[in-house]
Computed example of a mutant assay.
Amino acid sequence: MKNTMQLNVDTTQRCGVEGVFPDEHVDYPQGTWVRNPHLSLHQSLSREGCLNLVKMGHLLNV
Score class of each variant (00 low, 15 high):
residue 1 M to S: 08
residue 1 M to A: 08
residue 1 M to L: 07
residue 2 K to H: 00
residue 2 K to D: 02
residue 2 K to T: 03
residue 3 N to T: 11
residue 3 N to S: 12
residue 3 N to H: 12
residue 3 N to R: 14
residue 4 T to R: 09
residue 4 T to A: 11
residue 5 M to N: 04
residue 5 M to G: 01
residue 6 Q to Y: 03
residue 6 Q to K: 06
residue 6 Q to H: 05
residue 7 L to F: 02
residue 8 N to I: 03
residue 8 N to M: 12
residue 10 D to A: 07
residue 10 D to H: 09
residue 11 T to P: 06
residue 12 T to R: 06
residue 13 Q to V: 15
residue 13 Q to H: 13
residue 14 R to W: 06
residue 15 C to P: 01
residue 15 C to K: 09
residue 15 C to N: 03
residue 17 V to H: 00
residue 18 E to K: 14
residue 19 G to F: 02
residue 19 G to C: 07
residue 19 G to M: 06
residue 19 G to E: 05
residue 19 G to Y: 03
residue 19 G to D: 02
residue 19 G to R: 05
residue 20 V to Q: 12
residue 20 V to K: 13
residue 20 V to M: 12
residue 20 V to R: 12
residue 20 V to L: 10
residue 21 F to R: 11
residue 21 F to S: 13
residue 22 P to D: 05
residue 23 D to Y: 08
residue 23 D to C: 10
residue 23 D to H: 10
residue 24 E to C: 02
residue 24 E to T: 00
residue 24 E to M: 04
residue 25 H to G: 07
residue 25 H to W: 08
residue 25 H to N: 13
residue 26 V to W: 02
residue 26 V to C: 05
residue 26 V to A: 07
residue 27 D to E: 13
residue 27 D to V: 06
residue 27 D to Q: 11
residue 28 Y to W: 13
residue 28 Y to C: 09
residue 29 P to E: 10
residue 29 P to N: 09
residue 29 P to A: 09
residue 29 P to V: 07
residue 30 Q to S: 06
residue 31 G to F: 05
residue 31 G to T: 05
residue 31 G to N: 05
residue 31 G to H: 05
residue 33 W to V: 15
residue 33 W to H: 14
residue 33 W to A: 14
residue 34 V to L: 08
residue 34 V to T: 12
residue 34 V to S: 03
residue 35 R to T: 15
residue 35 R to Q: 11
residue 35 R to S: 10
residue 35 R to C: 10
residue 36 N to I: 01
residue 36 N to C: 03
residue 37 P to M: 05
residue 37 P to N: 11
residue 38 H to Y: 15
residue 38 H to Q: 12
residue 39 L to I: 06
residue 39 L to E: 09
residue 40 S to W: 00
residue 40 S to H: 01
residue 42 H to V: 05
residue 42 H to P: 01
residue 43 Q to E: 07
residue 43 Q to Y: 00
residue 43 Q to A: 04
residue 44 S to P: 00
residue 44 S to D: 08
residue 44 S to G: 10
residue 44 S to T: 11
residue 45 L to H: 13
residue 45 L to G: 08
residue 45 L to F: 13
residue 46 S to G: 07
residue 46 S to H: 07
residue 46 S to F: 06
residue 46 S to K: 05
residue 47 R to V: 11
residue 47 R to Q: 14
residue 48 E to R: 13
residue 48 E to P: 07
residue 48 E to K: 14
residue 48 E to D: 15
residue 49 G to T: 01
residue 49 G to H: 00
residue 50 C to Q: 00
residue 50 C to F: 04
residue 50 C to S: 04
residue 50 C to R: 02
residue 50 C to I: 02
residue 51 L to C: 05
residue 51 L to G: 01
residue 51 L to A: 03
residue 51 L to I: 08
residue 51 L to E: 04
residue 51 L to M: 07
residue 51 L to R: 09
residue 51 L to Y: 00
residue 52 N to K: 01
residue 53 L to P: 01
residue 53 L to Q: 03
residue 54 V to E: 02
residue 54 V to D: 01
residue 55 K to C: 13
residue 56 M to P: 04
residue 56 M to R: 14
residue 57 G to T: 04
residue 57 G to S: 04
residue 57 G to N: 03
residue 57 G to I: 02
residue 58 H to W: 14
residue 58 H to Q: 15
residue 58 H to C: 13
residue 58 H to Y: 15
residue 59 L to G: 03
residue 59 L to M: 10
residue 59 L to R: 08
residue 59 L to Q: 11
residue 60 L to S: 15
residue 60 L to A: 15
residue 60 L to F: 12
residue 60 L to D: 15
residue 61 N to L: 10
residue 62 V to D: 15
residue 62 V to W: 13
residue 62 V to A: 15
residue 62 V to F: 14
